[in-house]
């Protein structure tokens, strides 16, 4: 029995394979991550080379492979860079702080979206519009809370605010753990 000689199969697969194209929306989402990363690098008054390098690395990972925790590295190193720039008891200007907060938020949200939408996968515009709507809602809530915190005074200035802040940390960490534990159960 002779073996079949199949010479057309590979070409057939190659002929019908879809070309992997980069979508404009996917590029735009990653461009937001890059721009937010640049803002994180430029806003602080002083720069520490270690934190800067780590931030750059985090942003690069976040852009290249959004689902791999690059955003976490970028956010962590950006926080470190903020401390390095202003020290433990510094008082940075409000505009720089707001811009830095917005940049951190944008790194988080753009990377989360990029992880959900691979670069070569086309997406309907409704994805972007719904995502932007939720971003605006979160930013509005955050702005309200910031305004409230300014009205209340410096955090930790009273034992009530100290307790409230620590409770916030507890809620922040506890809510995801609790919800995920429940959903797994």
């Amino acid at each position: 029995m002779s073996r079949p000689l199949v010479l057309g199969r590979g070409l057939r697969r190659a002929a019908v394979r879809q070309p992997r194209q980069v979508t404009l929306a996917g590029l735009a989402v990653r461009a937001v991550t890059v721009l937010a990363g640049l803002a994180v690098l430029t806003i602080p008054a002083a720069h520490d080379p270690v934190w800067t390098a780590l931030t750059v690395l985090g942003v690069l990972v976040a852009v290249g492979s959004p689902g791999q925790g690059g955003a976490g590295l970028a956010l962590g190193s950006a926080v470190g860079g903020w401390f390095a720039a202003y020290g433990a008891h510094g008082s940075p200007p409000l505009a720089a702080t707001a811009g830095y907060a917005l940049a951190l938020y944008l790194i988080h949200t753009s990377t989360a979206l990029a992880a959900a939408v691979p670069l070569g996968v086309p997406m309907h515009t409704v994805v972007l519009t719904r995502w932007l709507r939720r971003c605006l809602l979160e930013l509005a809530v955050a702005a309200g809370l910031v305004a409230a915190s300014y009205a209340l005074g410096r955090p930790g200035s009273s034992s009530t605010l100290l307790l409230l802040g620590l409770l916030g940390v507890l809620v922040l960490v506890g809510v995801p753990v609790l919800l995920l534990h429940r959903s797994h159960g």
Partner: peptide, 9 residues
């Protein structure tokens, strides 16, 4: 101010 947007997110 830096923490709140992330916490809300």
């Amino acid at each position: 101010v830096l923490a709140l947007p992330l916490a809300v997110a």
